[in-house]
């Protein structure tokens, strides 16, 4: 689904969302008359230090303007920008900072919602979509940790062998279904229905205090052990003091 169509369906009462150099900024009007801040990445651009700093600056502006305006982050990105300049300048700090800003916004009372409508991968995925409280996706979204050809190079297994193995487990291969099964994507939206209604319904659900993605991954048979291991360590640590 193209960004223009998505924005049209999300905000029938209007929006001020603009795209400049692949970055999305603006506000949309919700059905109840309130506004939602919109940021994101369009056109499958990579996220380097410059992009990350602009996005985090916008998140901080939303927090500073007070209130508890929700934040929607729309993602169709490449992975992190793989370059000497970005690593020289400390890309890990910029991506971590962006994730920190989104998570802090959440802690300070802003709902944060991600919407995957295209590609995303690796560090860009962690710093944006995976740093939101609720991650939504549209059919056709292509989240990936790493593409199969690169994975084939590193694991020294042929793409055919990897594709065969991917039939028995969602744990490693790219794709929306696999990431939904492991608990990363909470809800896949229906593009044939009003996105505004579906967004309103997500916003009206009570806020979960706990990160429940590991439990979701267990329920959906995507991550059999993470939730139990985390819980056991949690209980042992609490019992040690």
């Amino acid at each position: 689904m193209l960004l223009d169509k998505i924005l049209e369906s999300l905000f029938p009462s209007g929006h001020t969302v603009l795209v400049a150099c692949g970055l999305i900024f603006g506000r949309g009007a919700l059905a109840d008359g309130d506004s939602i801040a919109v940021i994101g990445v369009d056109g499958r651009i990579p996220i380097g230090v410059d992009e990350a700093a602009l996005l985090s600056g916008h998140v901080l502006d939303v927090i500073k303007s007070g209130g508890n305006e929700p934040i929607l982050i729309l993602i169709d990105s490449d992975s992190q920008r793989m370059s000497k300049r970005d690593e020289l300048l400390g890309l890990n700090e910029f991506l971590a900072h962006l994730a920190k800003c989104l998570i802090l916004a959440n802690k300070l009372g802003h709902r944060t919602i991600g919407l995957l409508y295209g590609h995303t991968a690796a560090g860009a995925f962690i710093a944006t979509a995976l740093a939101t409280q609720t991650l939504l996706a549209l059919p056709g979204a292509e989240p990936a940790v790493m593409d199969l050809p690169s994975m084939s190079r590193v694991t020294k297994l042929s793409i055919e062998v990897l594709q065969e193995k991917a039939k028995s487990t969602p744990v490693f291969a790219p794709g929306l279904d696999n990431l939904a099964q492991t608990g990363a994507v909470a809800i896949t939206l229906d593009p044939d229905r009003s996105l505004a209604h579906q967004l309103t319904s997500v916003l009206s659900q009570p806020v979960e205090r706990e990160d429940s993605r590991d439990k979701l991954g267990k329920e959906r048979n995507g991550r059999p052990k993470a939730a139990d291991i985390a819980k056991r360590v949690y209980e042992l640590a609490r019992a040690s003091v």
């Binding site: 994730a99 995925f125 995976l130 291969a173 990363a184 993605r213």
Partner: peptide, 20 residues
């Protein structure tokens, strides 16, 4: 990479818990 989706999500969960 052999459990890439679980690993990627673990990193996201660790970051959230760390920041909290």
């Amino acid at each position: 990479l052999q459990e890439a989706n679980a690993g990627e999500l673990a990193i996201a969960e660790i970051m959230r818990a760390l920041i909290e």
